[in-house]
């Protein structure tokens, strides 16, 4: 089965969550990572609109008070096994917004973050490296889930 798992990790579908970001990292994710020079699609990636289709979650922004509940709700909608990547300095430490009255972050107080991609905004190469690291963690998660025999239909 590890052969099939290896194949499966060649198709990571990405989902972006904006947790109060200034949009800089989102522009990096949406455009530069997809321009001809870098092209994350050659890794088999695809940005999907629905959290239910996603495998790797890319979170940007410092997690503001207002969006916290929605972010947690959407994150819970993503089926297991999933990997969380924090993109930009904001979800890691709060960045320039650190100490602001409306900032609930850093994000790993609420979510298990697997990969950090620091930068303001991070370079496209760094984002792609983050996705590659997330792919390795994802493979481990799949194998772990298989050992435990978790394969269930969840109603949410």
């Amino acid at each position: 089965m590890s052969f099939l798992n290896n194949i499966a990790t060649k198709s990571p579908w990405l989902f972006r969550i904006n947790a109060g970001s200034c949009n800089g990292c989102d522009v990096e994710l949406a455009t530069t990572a997809f321009i001809p020079r870098f092209d994350v699609e050659r890794l088999g990636c695809k940005y999907c609109g629905s959290p239910r289709h996603a495998d790797i979650v890319l979170i940007t922004g410092p997690l503001t008070l207002k969006i916290k509940d929605q972010v947690l709700k959407v994150w819970n909608e993503i089926p297991e096994p999933k990997v969380t990547v924090a993109v930009g300095i904001c979800p890691i430490s709060g960045g320039v917004f650190k100490g602001g009255h409306s900032i609930e972050g850093p994000i790993d107080r609420y979510l298990p973050v697997d990969v950090n991609v620091p930068g303001c905004p991070p370079r496209p190469q760094a984002i792609m490296e983050g996705i590659l690291l997330a792919k390795e963690i994802w493979l481990k998660r799949i194998e772990e889930a298989e050992r435990k025999g978790v394969r269930h239909v969840q109603i949410s």
Binding site: N5, P79, P81, Q154
Partner: peptide, 8 residues
């Protein structure tokens, strides 16, 4: 191979 989710 992914988990199947059904809305309540």
């Amino acid at each position: 191979g992914k988990e199947a989710m059904i809305p309540e």
